[in-house]
Design a protein around this nucleic acid. Structure first.
Length: 804
RNA sequence: GCCGCUAUGGCGAAACUGGCAGACGCAAGGGACUUAAAAUCCCUCGGUGGAAACACCAUACCGGUUCGAGCCCGGUUAGCGGCACCA
């Protein structure tokens, strides 16, 4: 027989063109249909092109999207570009090419690579964060935040590269040095735009109960927000002022033997004339300020500090005077910037006390405070603590807080590790912040009608000598008039961070061409929330949290109608190089998806990426294993040679088909793409063993495989004249009854050891299974002369006879 | 240090809710076809012993619960990722 060759490159090109031309994957605007919104993180279009890691996520949700369409949903599966950012800007500086041009070229390359994979994106809703029509709305959201008092300007320490004389984003500081030149990075105080994400901290924790995120995502978000419960306590001081501290262990108040203030604490200046060793204190302050991140990390082990001579604190519970120190182990950015130190029950305080020979008082019994700090809250009992003696830690906390409140010396207090979002970048390639600074009126928002506030053309993208954005050098752009009073004013020259555009992009997809709003309310109400969002774990704490924050804000001002943007969040594992290391140019282990598509085809590539291992875990690439997936497709293709005319399932494969449909249907929902593929491979092995396949079976087989390998299955569908386009057919159904085989092999154990296997009818009850098992000759021999103590029967699984 | 994840053949991995460990695939070995190779098809494939039936051992390590543990509990080790003095 003349066999039709599986010419993947011709087939893939053909169907990609047809899908494009007929717009088969464009989401409908008929809002009466049931909807499904599948979302993957839009990529940063880097100069390196697509990485093999990208298609892992895209293919997975493509499978979900294609399955949902076959299940009758109106599916939105969009794609776009998170295109503002530093690598593009750096490339532009180096090669003197406009970042817009660089972005345009990179996007074109990415898009053709994605199209070559046959991903069913709705390209009619493509978004690009660098389009003025897009960032118009990013700026609009910023203005709403500003109007609600959630955007504010603050003096902040920023990273300053002493060699490039440039302000660096945190991401550009690697191991305490400049990513680009390896120069020393120090902190410099600059005025920065901030967003009050901390105002949403509690809701960002609480509303995790409303969504279906994989557990590890919820856990890391909670840890990142870092809620802690404790108390603020006012300590009187000999300087007259009260010093406010925060503690999570108010129960240990009797054990506080000294206090520590952060070197940046404002009281130090206030108390300067009362501190007799002020020179020593100032020297320490300066040294602390100069320390780079790298040094700080290194010096973590050894505690340092200076005692304030001439000022002491007074412990409110016993009126005792205790010394006050400054030390950089206390951070100005958390709590009140000052602590009470309880060396008996806090590891850091214990280390400090040992070094400075300060008294250690045991106030919770249970450990040996001479050896190490005893920090266990669950088991200890209060001692040496006056009114708290004999209480548990929990009881003591409650009692002391009540007492402090009564005395007016303290109050219960919740703190979060989460800090406000530093929203300024002194860079060119970002959204201009639409604010004007007027000497008379202060910070004035640009009129919304003036949006988008476009990036001006500049000669050079280099940051300026003093660390200002390149925009600061553009006098004609900077100098403007105040929208409020009409007087002379200056534009804000900082731009937004890359996280801005990605904090709301999923909303724009709902109505991507809208010029009057970020999206029509009707469209948002129909599509939102995103039903399934997949992305990398590395975005759990920044992007995911930022976008939840913006969405909650938009919910509060009535723009969106759901409190949470994503109903379900899953996360894929990274794909490593063949050597088990992270792929990188320097290691030379990078795999280019183009090469795989060229050599094996997109369907094989898709299948391999899904078959590589557990979707949620990291997996090393294996060039040799790809072949297995290619063979599977060829075996599928070659089945066309042995098709029998029947439209039914054959009697000997019927149950196998029902079982496979069930398995594949369920596995897709549970991110078990690897075992779904394995089940289809096993089915094909069964078919080969039999030697033929009916038309009806072939039909089901290609329907099942379509979401995984869309091109080859579509081609087979057409060649077999099954009618219409495969991607528009219904998802195959199965009957639970028919998933069972007539006979099943069950295990027979004697006292827990496997001794035999017997075939029983699949509907055999316990007694029947037992009877068949006991009739087995091996079992009979094993039971010879023994007394049966117990018989356990799990129908369809095993029989265990315990005998002595 | 803290948080999270992981540990199963030569390799990637399966194993439902505690019920036949190793599905599926790769590699390897043998065979068929071929002048030959590729491709394809068939067989074998955790270890030890045995001609075989079969027996014993085996899911990082030690212990426990159970008729039965890769899975549950307690402890230990190693690796990966994140955070970094958060009071």
């Amino acid at each position: 027989m003349l066999r039709l060759r599986y010419d993947f490159s011709a087939i893939e090109k053909k169907w990609q063109d047809i899908w494009d031309e007929k717009q088969v994957f464009a989401a409908s605007t008929d809002y009466t249909k049931p909807k499904y919104y599948a979302l993957v993180e839009f990529p940063y279009p880097s100069g390196q092109g697509l990485h093999v890691g990208h298609p892992r996520s895209y293919t997975a949700l493509d499978i979900v999207a294609r399955k949902r369409r076959m299940q009758g949903y109106n599916v939105l599966y969009p794609m776009g570009w998170d295109a503002f950012g530093l690598p593009t800007e750096n490339f532009a500086i180096k090669h003197h090419i406009h970042p817009e041009k660089v972005t345009h070229d990179n996007v074109a390359r990415f898009k053709s690579q994605l199209k070559a994979l046959g991903l069913s994106f709705d390209w009619s809703r493509e978004v690009n964060t660098t389009d003025a029509n897009y960032y118009k709305w990013t700026q609009w959201i910023f203005l709403q935040l500003f109007k609600k008092g959630l955007a504010y300007k603050k003096e902040m320490a920023v990273n300053w590269c002493t060699s490039c004389k440039v302000v660096l984003a945190n991401e550009e500081v690697v191991n305490g040095v400049c990513e680009r030149c390896s120069g020393e990075v120090v902190h410099k105080v600059k005025s920065q735009w901030m967003l009050k994400i901390t105002e949403y901290a509690q809701r960002l924790i609480d509303d995790l109960d409303l969504v279906d995120y994989i557990d590890r995502v919820k856990v890391s978000q909670k840890n990142w927000i870092g809620r802690s419960e404790g108390a603020e306590v006012n300590f009187d001081t000999t300087a007259g002022d009260q010093l406010l501290i925060y503690t999570t262990r108010p129960d240990t108040l009797y054990g506080a033997t000294y206090m520590v203030m952060s070197p940046e604490h404002p009281y130090l200046e206030k108390w300067a004339d009362k501190i007799s060793n002020i020179d020593e204190v100032c020297a320490y302050q300066e040294a602390a300020a100069k320390k780079s991140d790298l040094e700080r990390a290194e010096l973590n082990k050894e505690k340092t500090g200076v005692k304030l001579c001439g000022v002491a604190g007074i412990n409110p519970v016993n009126g005792k005077e205790i010394p006050i120190f400054i030390s950089d182990y206390v951070l100005m950015t958390y709590g009140t910037g000052a602590i009470m130190a309880v060396p008996g029950h806090d590891t850091r305080d214990w280390e400090f006390a040992k070094k400075f020979q300060l008294p250690i008082i045991e106030v919770v019994k249970g450990g040996n405070v001479e050896e190490e700090a005893f920090t266990d809250c669950a088991t200890g009992v209060m001692v040496n603590s006056g009114m708290l003696d004999g209480l548990s830690v929990e009881e003591a906390k409650e009692k002391i807080i009540a007492w402090l409140q009564e005395q007016g010396k303290g109050t219960a207090k919740v703190n979060y590790k989460l800090r406000d979002w530093v929203f300024s970048r002194q860079r060119y390639w970002g959204e201009p912040i639409p604010i004007v600074h007027c000497d008379k009126c202060g910070f004035v928002p640009v009129d919304e009608k003036e949006l988008p506030l476009r990036l001006p053309e500049v000669e050079s993208y280099e940051p300026t000598e003093n660390g200002e954005s390149p925009l600061a050098a553009m006098d004609e752009w900077v100098n403007t008039t105040c929208p409020h009073c009409g007087g002379p004013a200056k534009r804000e020259t900082d731009t937004m961070p890359q996280w801005a555009g990605s904090s709301w992009y999923f909303l724009r997809y709902c109505d991507a061409a809208n010029n009057d709003a970020l999206a029509a309310k009707e469209a948002l109400d129909y599509w939102m929330p995103v039903d399934w969002y997949n992305g990398g774990m590395e975005h759990t704490t920044l992007h995911l949290l930022y976008s939840r924050f913006w969405h909650k804000f938009l919910y509060d001002i009535g723009v969106v109608s759901t409190p949470e943007p994503y109903a379900k969040r899953t996360s894929h594992g990274m794909i490593l190089g063949e050597d088990g290391q992270k792929m990188s140019k320097s290691r030379g282990n990078v795999v280019n998806p183009d090469d795989i598509v060229r050599e094996y085809g997109a369907d094989t590539m898709r299948l391999y990426e899904m078959f590589i291992g557990d979707f949620e875990k990291t997996a090393p690439w294996s060039q040799a294993s790809i072949k297995g997936c290619k063979r599977f497709l060829e075996r599928l293709w070659n089945l066309m040679d042995v098709i029998q005319p029947s439209d039914e399932y054959s009697s000997d494969l019927e149950s196998a088909f029902h079982r496979t449909i069930k398995k594949v249907s369920e596995d897709i929902e549970n991110l078990k793409f690897n075992t779904a593929i394995a089940a289809m491979m096993a089915l094909i092995n069964d078919i080969y063993e039999k030697g033929s396949i009916t038309r009806g079976e072939m039909k089901t087989l290609v329907q099942l495989a379509n979401p995984f390998a869309p091109h080859i299955t579509e081609e087979i569908w057409e060649l077999q004249n099954f009618g219409g386009m495969l991607n528009q057919q219904a998802w195959p159904s199965y009957e639970e009854d028919k998933c069972k085989e007539a006979m099943v092999e069950i295990a027979v154990q004697i006292s827990g050891k496997l001794r035999a296997r017997v075939n029983v009818p699949s509907d055999a009850d316990q007694a029947a299974c037992l009877e068949i098992a006991k009739a087995d000759p091996t079992v009979k021999a094993q039971l010879e002369g023994k007394t049966i103590v117990k018989e356990i029967v799990i129908p369809g699984k095993l029989v265990n006879i315990v005998a002595k």
